[in-house]
Simulated assay, not measured.
Amino acid sequence: MLSGDSPTVARLDEAITACCLAAAAFADTTLAPQQVAQIAMDCLGRLRAAHPARSAQNLDMAAFRSGLRGPLKGLLPARSEVPREVSDLHLLDGRGQLDERVHQLCREHLVPLRALEVPWPWARMRAEQQQGRLHEALRQLPPALYTRARLLCITHPAGEARTLRRSWGDLWGKVDFFEPISQWSWVQVAGWWFACPLCQWPMLVEAEEQQARVRCTAHAWRGVRYTLDLSRAQWSSPPRLRLTGRPSSKQTWPQQQVRGQPASSDHLAFQEGAWRFTTLAGLSEKELCDRALTEVPEAHCEMWPADPYPDAYDVRMSVPTPRGEHVFRVDVKDWIDAAALARALISKPLPDRFIHVVIPDHQYSQLPTLNDRLPTTHYRAFTVTRFLEHVADTARCRA
């Protein structure tokens, strides 16, 4: 890291935001060179302003651009208190493309992003707008329809139009955030697209001369990576992918063969913002409930309860006791930066009921940060496994 004094939270937020925004500009091949140059200069100015004067002198455009391909800590002010997941993150890969986690990191620093009056040359603003419109449409539904719509956002975010209409039923016109996959060239190869086995959304296709690499941008880290042999000019039947990724420990998923679907105008997919912020978030919540049904059979789960209003928290989980049910109110979170998550939670009015914050097992190292920074009278953080053990212990102790 460049030398200097310990940065304030605001300076660190601006530094991270500037790096992410510049990386997105360099990776966006649809931007004109002058647009990229202007955005990069604006971001470099923001980054330099986040550094002490003596270390900012070492930051020129060449160092900035080179640093985006290395660990993020190389561009942040010295003594920055960020978790390893953030400090070791390479915003751009060897081919100059955005790492899958950059969108998530930017979402976690959303307030600073909005505060920076810098043009957003990438799909981020569009995704934010899509998310806002979808959530507004969902909030207008009655509680029973709200829950049903949220579940459909998880289970049916893409597919053949007739199948989607049949699955969504009377909600089809009320939650209409689909686009034709035929317009998404980045998910197609030889006229086919492929659904991620975890989230069912179209996977990214990177084609070369003889082979295409196919991966889910949200779940590649869990092993959802494939290849497709392109030596055949066309397929008379849907092509099948060959799995190349290795599922990470305790992160199992159905490893059935993935077959292509026609990338035609009658195959639709959720807009990216709707998928990223609603489908993926709901998938984590559903996975928690599915594990609870298996590991704590006496537990009862209700997703997105109207308690006191829909989406006040994610899951209401209860276990029976002689004195009645014991209730756990759960917020499921999957953030890269634990400090940013803590700030986001405490920036809101404190909940009137105790909330259990549950994060993925692989983020167990973030528990001390969360539990140190969150008010213990209102929040306590667990990993999924530790939370389910806590629920099971409660059921046994009170039985």
Rank of each mutant, 00 (worst) to 15 (best):
Q38L: 06
R398L: 13
A53H: 05
L59Q: 11
A62N: 08
R215V: 01
V315D: 04
K73I: 09
E209A: 13
L2R: 14
L293G: 11
M317T: 12
N58W: 12
T252Q: 13
S248V: 13
L350V: 06
G94D: 15
M125N: 10
P77N: 11
L293Y: 02
R276D: 08
G70S: 13
L151F: 01
F26K: 08
G67C: 05
S248W: 04
R84G: 01
L31V: 06
E287W: 00
R126I: 07
R276K: 08
R139W: 05
A63S: 08
A281H: 15
H109A: 03
P238H: 07
D13I: 00
K348Q: 15
S365W: 02
F354A: 07
D361G: 07
R166Q: 14
V189K: 04
Q131D: 14
R148L: 14
L367R: 03
Q57A: 14
V384D: 04
K348W: 01
V391R: 05
P52S: 15
L288Y: 08
M61D: 11
R84F: 03
G173A: 09
A22N: 09
V258P: 04
W184G: 01
I154G: 02
R150T: 12
D314P: 09
T294K: 12
L268S: 03
A123T: 11
M317R: 10
L138Y: 11
G273C: 04
W193G: 01
R215D: 10
T30G: 03
Q210Y: 04
A395M: 06
F387D: 12
R101G: 06
L2N: 09
P142H: 00
F354P: 07
D372V: 00
L283E: 09
T294M: 04
R259N: 02
L241F: 06
A23S: 12
A63I: 08
I346P: 03
A78D: 14
L374Q: 12
N371F: 05
A340L: 11
F354W: 08
Y146F: 15
R316A: 13
R398G: 01
R166G: 05
R79A: 12
D372Q: 14
P77R: 06
T147P: 01
L370C: 07
I154E: 10
D393K: 11
P351K: 08
G282D: 02
N58M: 09
A37L: 08
A306E: 15
L388Q: 12
R101T: 11
A161P: 00
V9C: 02
T376C: 06
R54E: 15
Q188L: 00
L228G: 05
R259A: 15
Q251I: 00
L374I: 03
E285F: 01
D361S: 05
H103K: 03
L268K: 02
D337E: 11
V319D: 15
R124T: 04
L288R: 11
D361Y: 00
A62V: 14
E108S: 04
V111Q: 12
H156C: 08
H90N: 14
Y226Q: 09
Q366L: 03
L47V: 04
Q188E: 13
D99T: 02
T147Y: 00
R11F: 00
C289F: 00
L345A: 04
G273D: 09
T394H: 07
T294G: 00
Y309F: 13
R126N: 10
